[in-house]
Amino acid sequence: MENEIKQYLVGVGKKVSLENYSTTYSGDRDKRTSQQELEETKEELAKYQETMYAADSRSVLIIFQAMDAAGKDSAIQHVMTGFNPQGCQVYSFKTPTSEEYDHDFLWRHYKALPERGRVGIHNRSHYENVLVCKVHPEYVLNEKIPGYQDVKEVDKDFWKRRYESIRNFEKHISDNGTVIVKIFLHVSKEEQKQRFLDRIDDPSKNWKFSSGDIAERALWNDYMKAYEEAIAETSTESSPWYIIPADKKWYARLAISKILIETFKGLNLKFPELPKNELLKLDEIKQQLLDEK
């Protein structure tokens, strides 16, 4: 599947038009065998995670962005359950608090970065600041940035600088050992509609639905443009974007797992080796343990 997932990788400096990316999978794979393959892949991911945890030299940050009902939560649930919770942390970012608004927009995300040896998963991320804030520029005023007291002042130069801030932030953490994988779950407007209806019809899923979701759905085209610009501006060699077809959740989950496998393989991580003097003591210590009464 290595060659298959390469088609979802966004090239550096490439202009992005989401209309050119399919939201559904139409290949030869079937749901049942793909689910079996996902289970096998999760076992492989667990082994890679254990090695990274032991090596304690790198960390992996996985970023999920998508429209509502695209399957972010379920992807995290089904793909990441193979990870040892001791070495994995998940953050779901909501509307910033007053304390967070009193800092720069990256502050709360920097605080949530995974330590060396750990996997960090960000359900939504710092990209909300060039997505929802791009569609609703009035939100930028909550940040109290000097020189921006009116929506009219939030111009193209503002967004250009914000994209630059994101690129610099990601380059900095990448240079210091954090591997970044950015995943956009590309769901169709028709599939989102059906998933919204399912949430309404199923009492156990009513809590997932908000009337505000419909208001945001009405701005679909604005969001697509914001995603296109954000992805094109911030897909780099060290922190690439993947645009994954998300209409079929079972396929999206498998594709994500395979992307992570290739990411871990590229790290060439190994378990740490004991110093020679400690290795020489192992036989002696083993014998002491065996001689215990």
Score class of each variant (00 low, 15 high):
Ser238Asn: 05
Thr263Ile: 01
Thr236Ile: 11
Ala232Asn: 05
Ile256Ser: 02
Glu233Trp: 11
Ile285Gln: 02
Leu260Asp: 06
Asn277Cys: 01
Asp247Lys: 03
Asp247Tyr: 07
Ala230Phe: 01
Glu273Leu: 13
Arg253Met: 10
Pro272Asn: 05
Lys248Ile: 02
Ile243Leu: 07
Leu267His: 06
Leu219Glu: 13
Lys248Ser: 08
Ile259Val: 14
Arg253Phe: 11
Phe271Gln: 09
Leu260Gly: 09
Tyr227Met: 08
Ser235His: 09
Lys258Trp: 12
Glu273Asp: 13
Ile261Lys: 14
Ala226Asp: 07
Ala255Gln: 02
Glu229Phe: 06
Lys276His: 14
Arg253Thr: 05
Tyr251Trp: 04
Asp247Pro: 10
Lys270Leu: 10
Lys270Gln: 15
Ala246Tyr: 02
Lys225Ile: 00
Leu274Ala: 13
Ser235Cys: 04
Asn277His: 13
Ala230Trp: 06
Ser239Leu: 00
Glu284Leu: 12
Phe271Glu: 07
Ile244Ala: 08
Asp247Cys: 06
Met224Cys: 12
Ser257Tyr: 04
Trp220Thr: 06
Leu260Ala: 06
Ser239Ala: 15
Glu237Cys: 08
Ser239Met: 10
Met224Gln: 10
Asp283Phe: 08
Arg217Trp: 02
Ala252Leu: 09
Leu254Ile: 03
Ala218Trp: 00
Lys281Gln: 15
Glu237Asn: 14
Glu278Arg: 15
Asp283Tyr: 10
Asn268Asp: 15
Pro275Trp: 04
Phe264Ala: 11
Trp220Leu: 01
Ala218Ser: 07
Lys248His: 11
Lys225Trp: 04
Asp247Val: 03
Leu274Phe: 01
Ile231Val: 13
Asp222Asn: 12
Arg253Val: 07
Gln287Tyr: 05
Ala232Met: 10
Ile243Arg: 04
Asn268Gln: 14
